[in-house]
Design a protein around this nucleic acid. Structure first.
Length: 266
DNA sequence: ATGACGGTGTGGCACCGA
């Protein structure tokens, strides 16, 4: 079973890339069973259900005008779809959860778009801290109900030095600050595992590159998209990779998709 | 220090991302 996550930076702009990438995976590797999308930047009324259905995909969307927006695409039906907004007074579309059937039993999947936070000390950063706190409590409860859980998406945190192209210079900037890293660690302390770090990975493995300054060509990136798996699933994880190829296509998203493979009972 | 690129909105630019 193969799962993937991708911040598409507008699904209206990127639907051809999503369909092309899924077709390419199916042809040259194996089908993607579940794809989590972030930054749809569209309301549900504009979500391309028909095009996705024609590609053989079920879909569930939590849309919003202009910003945010998350979705789950799946070969099999999505059950128990929830659109949580755990941060009080904040209705932004950043989380969608659903259950899919898998060989070892039902799998709870969460597509997540964490708050960016702009810069430490800013009002948006304070909002990021509040939102992360609320997410932590929501995930604790979700795990209690769904022990076999994968949370994947754009978490906007580079948890370790190896996840940044310049960790020393950027140490106190957004995605790098100690408080953000502490929040990431608290998610792992709930019993989640960073699937990417289960395996040896090349230095300079990133999921996001700024559009400016030829950052992709120079590999000036960050690993801020993540796939976190609950403990019962960890023995099933057979691979976790980043596919940089769509980042090199014309008019790309600034993020690349990340994939995980579950083997055997997974 | 700033802005650079690319997306959205009801625009003539501003705001946002990370």
């Amino acid at each position: 079973m193969r799962l993937a996550t991708w911040n598409v930076n507008s699904l209206a702009a990127r639907l051809p890339h999503v369909l092309d990438w899924l077709a390419q995976q199916q042809q040259h590797a194996a089908p993607i069973d579940v794809l989590a999308l972030q930054e749809l930047k569209m309301v549900q009324e504009k979500f391309p259900f028909a095009a996705l259905h024609a590609a053989g995909l079920h879909a569930a969307c939590f849309g919003q005008k202009a910003y945010n927006g998350v979705a789950l695409l799946a070969r099999q039906p999505l059950r128990e779809v929830h659109r949580p907004t755990p941060c009080a007074g904040d209705e932004s579309a950043r989380l969608i959860a659903a259950t899919v059937d898998a060989p070892g039993g039902p799998l709870r999947i969460v597509s997540a778009y964490f708050v960016n936070g702009q810069a430490p000390g800013s009002e948006k950063y304070a909002y990021k801290m509040r939102w992360l706190e609320a997410l932590h409590e929501w995930l604790r409860a979700e795990l209690a109900q769904h022990p076999r859980l994968i949370l994947m998406g754009d978490l906007n945190i580079a948890p370790e030095d190896a996840d940044s192209h310049d960790p020393a210079r950027l140490a106190d900037t957004i995605c790098h600050s100690p408080q953000e890293k502490a929040h990431f660690a608290r998610l792992l302390a709930l019993g989640m595992t960073d699937a990417f770090r289960l395996f040896a990975q090349a230095a300079g493995s990133f999921t996001w590159w700024d559009y400016r300054q030829a950052a992709f060509r120079r590999n000036l990136g960050l690993r801020i998209d993540h796939i976190l798996a609950s403990a019962p699933l960890v023995p099933c994880i057979s691979a976790c990779t980043i596919d940089r190829t769509p980042r090199s296509w014309p008019r790309p998203s600034d993020h690349a998709p990340m994939l995980v493979e579950l083997a055997g009972t997974g």
